[in-house]
């Protein structure tokens, strides 16, 4: 299992974007996601799932993710999550590069 080495950020607070901050999480706590969204009631579940799935698919654990969403589509959520993970020192799997 991989773990982030440092804290890193990707994405912006512009409309249709999402800001993702990845930091090393408490050991044993797994994937912890804190999500704020302008469309929380409408799409919060879908956004949460996209972040979780993206992180899990990369084999990452013990990670804390703080996400601030401004109406990003799922493809943007995935891209920003991967970027933040890479910037935090996670070696991304080949097929997503």
């Amino acid at each position: 299992m991989k773990k982030p080495v440092s804290t890193a950020q990707a994405g912006t607070l512009e409309s249709n974007d999402i800001s993702i901050i990845v930091s090393p999480g408490e050991p044993g706590k797994g994937i912890v996601i804190e999500l704020e969204s302008v469309v929380f009631d409408q799409f919060g579940q879908l956004i949460f799932e996209e972040i979780r799935k993206t992180v899990e698919d990369q084999g990452v654990t013990d990670v804390y993710i703080k996400a601030n969403d401004r109406g990003a589509l799922n493809c943007t959520v995935a891209a920003r999550t991967l970027t933040a993970l890479a910037r935090a020192g996670v070696a991304l799997k080949e097929e997503v590069l």
Partner: peptide
């Protein structure tokens, strides 16, 4: 297809 399924108001 772009946005996914939106949750209706409660």
């Amino acid at each position: 297809k772009m946005v996914g399924k939106m949750q209706p108001p409660k």
